[in-house]
């Protein structure tokens, strides 16, 4: 374990609880979650937003980073598989390393799956926020590796989709390698006589 336990007074976490309209607030008591978050160790501010991912929500994060000298951010909203890039970019714009942002998934993993259980969903949301905040205390800034992109595309399959994709990429000026396992391209479409809805021949 290389990262040493951080000193408590160094950690300044801001928690942003998203209503997501009614997507989250419809099943989770977001006000209670925000109050709960404020009391967590290391948390210096907790804010509830209507839509954290929208500009006003993102601006609130940026403002709070400056006003409260935040060095960790927890966004309690949706799945990181959707909006982690959004919020990483947001904190980066406010001068924070993007890896100092952590998300709690209150939508896909909570409000959407427990719509009839406000108490249970709210308890769960609190735990998820507590977990994200606990993790945030140990987050470290990270530097990403930057790699060049080889300017050539591979298209696997020479049917109508593969041919069309290859042509469009080539038209846009990219080098394309099209691979096809059969002796000729054309795929299934080339085996058809007429095709709908135009009733003209396929080749």
């Amino acid at each position: 374990m290389v990262a040493p336990k951080p000193l408590e007074d160094e950690i300044r976490i801001g928690v942003f609880v998203c209503d997501c309209g009614l997507n989250i607030a419809g099943a989770v008591d977001c006000a209670a979650v925000t109050v709960f978050a404020k009391a967590l160790p290391g948390v210096v501010c907790a804010v509830r937003n209507k839509y954290t991912c929208a500009d006003p929500g993102q601006n609130e994060i940026k403002d709070a980073i400056r006003a409260h000298k935040l060095n960790r951010v927890v966004v309690a909203s949706c799945t990181p598989r959707q909006h982690e890039p959004t919020f990483r970019q947001c904190v980066r714009e406010a001068g924070l390393n993007p890896y100092l942002m952590e998300m709690a998934n209150l939508r896909e993993h909570c409000s959407w799956v427990h719509p009839g259980n406000r108490e249970g969903a709210t308890r769960k949301a609190m735990d998820l926020v507590a977990s994200a905040a606990a993790r945030a205390r140990f987050l470290q800034p990270q530097q990403e590796l930057s790699v060049p992109v080889t300017k050539r595309a591979l298209v696997i399959g020479g049917g109508v989709a593969g041919i069309e994709a290859s042509l469009q990429l080539a038209d846009a000026g990219h080098k394309v390698v099209l691979v096809e396992k059969q002796p000729s391209i054309g795929g299934i479409m080339a085996q058809l006589d007429k095709t709908y809805p135009t009733m003209d021949c396929s080749i």
């Binding site: 590796l145 930057s146 790699v147 050539r152 595309a153 989709a161 593969g162 041919i163 069309e164 990219h174």
Partner: peptide
């Protein structure tokens, strides 16, 4: 069907083209 295949081919060509145009990408740390 064919129309949808052509549509999707265009969409993926555009997505792939955007990536090829970026020059460099960041790898998650």
């Amino acid at each position: 069907d064919i129309k949808d295949s052509v549509c999707q081919a265009g969409a993926s060509a555009s997505r792939a083209g955007a990536l090829l145009n970026t020059g460099r990408i960041q790898i998650e740390a």
